[in-house]
Design a protein around this nucleic acid. Structure first.
Lengths: 326, 326
DNA sequence: CTGTTAGCGCTTTCAT
DNA sequence: ATGAAAGCGCTAACAG
């Protein structure tokens, strides 16, 4: 039925240990016998059973990936980056969605341990003590991806969100904006958004800065929120914490009979495909989404391969892509 | 170090077999001893090793998911559906991207077998004989998701794309369009798009039907393609095979100094979030993306659990969502 | 350079 | 209702 390493050994007239050796290159094997083994392998169509391998070696070549929601454009792009590098290093990923629910997240860390993943890439809106505790007693190498650990206990890959927030603010200020609004998710829901807000506050006088919150960070909620803000106060510059919110801002401004960028300049975060498919094309603080994933995974492999790691918390660069909305 | 079933057995003063029984509910255990075991488990913080379990039981509770590219909105939504149902039935998913490359796909089917996945959910643009062969000698239950098997050898979940194409054409015809264009990926790259084209041909006279192809189905390539088509011939109705292409069509029309929907009516396929975030909001043939994934996974569990399956190829319903572009 | 022999941590007969 | 024992398919000492 299923052909095992034992069958290959018999066919090649060697011991299973030798087969294992040519399979893993874990010791030198005479060229001649190596060939016999390889012939036997292809003749029988043998494929090593990764589960048995995992049990024996205590390495599954599988890494767990916990994200809030793959169906979000930003996240999907990150996952793509993770998977590409994982493939490159011969790992597979087990993907799960947490919907940012703490209990589910903690639960997942546990089941990832049951699955014996070699490492974990973790993405969440707000890292809590419970997470850190769970990581610790799971005893699995973890890297946080686009997720901030204020106390830097866990390796992570991120951009400098505070700085990025300040850059966005400065950009608008330099272009003459006097009344800036920040369109974002509700306070406390995302550490990253909070950092950006802090950055904004550092360069824009508080009295010239408004805050517009949209439930769940969704277009549908943002649109009316921005509209009413526009009526309540003068606004000539908007920073949005995602492309989706930026687009909502654009439409709200247009609905108010104003023009982007003439009357209101808009700069958004992320630079998903949305940003350059809409009209006007959006100026953005581009985030290296794919690289978040790729670099996280690469960092994880360093831990797994015991390579030297110079920097436990990697800060990727963001940059402003100037388009039509400013 | 790591606590095993053996430790639990000793702690509870029973045999490991009994522990296994309470763990799996695989046989009746006296209430009293069951409690002792459970206490031991929580006292020791025991968690069963899924890899060992997989080796012994030959079931990994893991299913392989092979998709062209998670970073595509459509795919990401499907994957979300798969993962949700997988979680519901206590399965995990190993996610891989194939970029629709045949050799990579075949390779992946093999490594999925190595990983001993219990089942496979497969998504590709064009199913080939090589795929079917690989499925067969992998001996894994497979369900095709949003992928068509012309010969219906493999279980699948889909919509009726031919019919959907015809519906889109009819819709435009009924609204007075005389010169219809289909914006799509290059011929042969996607069976689904081909089906839609066939559907279109069945209701729109060939001489009133134009075909506009965009490399990779991308906005960037579609925009100029539609623009030049607009100059070359009269067009007053457009069917696009994805939201992204639909948006490109909208912008191309606008750039030509025409209006949507007054001069040109546009209907697109998919109904990703893009469709109702753009202006004008797009009329679409809505595809049940999440359900593609969810139903596929559910169907797979039926095979896995030996539940009776009445229908091996499930056809989900599509529907027209009327918005501003028509 | 190659073979022998223990396990890895669990499920699953087969007894009792 | 519970225990003993034999694997699952492989890796990893340890010999030779």
């Amino acid at each position: 039925m299923t052909v095992t390493i034992y069958d290959v050994a018999r066919e090649a007239k060697v011991s299973m240990a030798t087969v294992s050796r040519v399979l893993n290159g874990t010791a030198v094997v005479k060229e001649d016998t190596k060939k016999r083994v390889q012939d036997a392998i292809s003749k029988l169509g043998y494929r090593p059973n990764a589960v048995a391998r995992g049990l024996a070696s205590k390495k599954t070549r599988t890494i767990g990936v916990i994200v809030p929601d793959v169906s979000a454009a930003f996240v999907a792009e990150v996952v793509r980056g993770i998977e590409d590098i994982a493939t490159m290093y011969d790992y597979h990923i087990i993907l799960t969605n947490s919907d940012s629910q703490l209990n589910r997240e903690i639960d997942l860390i546990g089941t990832m341990w049951e699955k014996q993943v070699d490492g974990l890439i973790y993405m969440t809106d707000r890292l809590q003590k419970e997470h850190v505790d769970a990581f610790e007693d799971a005893q699995i190498p973890v890297v946080l991806c686009a997720t901030e650990d204020p106390e830097r206990r866990i390796p992570s890959v991120n951009i400098d969100n505070r700085r990025a927030g300040a850059d966005a603010g400065t950009y608008l200020l330099e272009r003459g904006c006097k009344h800036i609004a920040f369109v974002t998710t509700p306070e406390g829901s995302s550490v990253l958004a909070d950092r950006r807000w802090t950055g904004l506050l550092s360069c824009v006088p508080a009295e010239e800065l408004a805050r517009i919150e949209a439930h769940d960070g969704r277009y549908e909620y943002a649109l009316p929120a921005v509209k009413s803000a526009l009526q309540a106060q003068p606004i000539d510059g908007i920073v949005a914490t995602s492309d989706e919110l930026g687009l909502a801002a654009i439409h709200a401004v247009q609905d108010a009979g104003l023009k982007v960028p003439e009357n209101v300049k808009i700069i958004a975060f992320d630079n998903t495909r949305l940003a350059n498919m809409v009209r006007p094309e959006m100026t953005v603080i581009a985030q290296p989404m794919y690289d978040f994933g790729a670099v996280s995974m690469r960092l994880l492999t360093k831990f797994l391969l015991d390579e030297p790691v110079e920097n436990y918390s990697v800060t990727l660069l963001h940059n402003i892509v100037e388009r039509e909305s400013t």
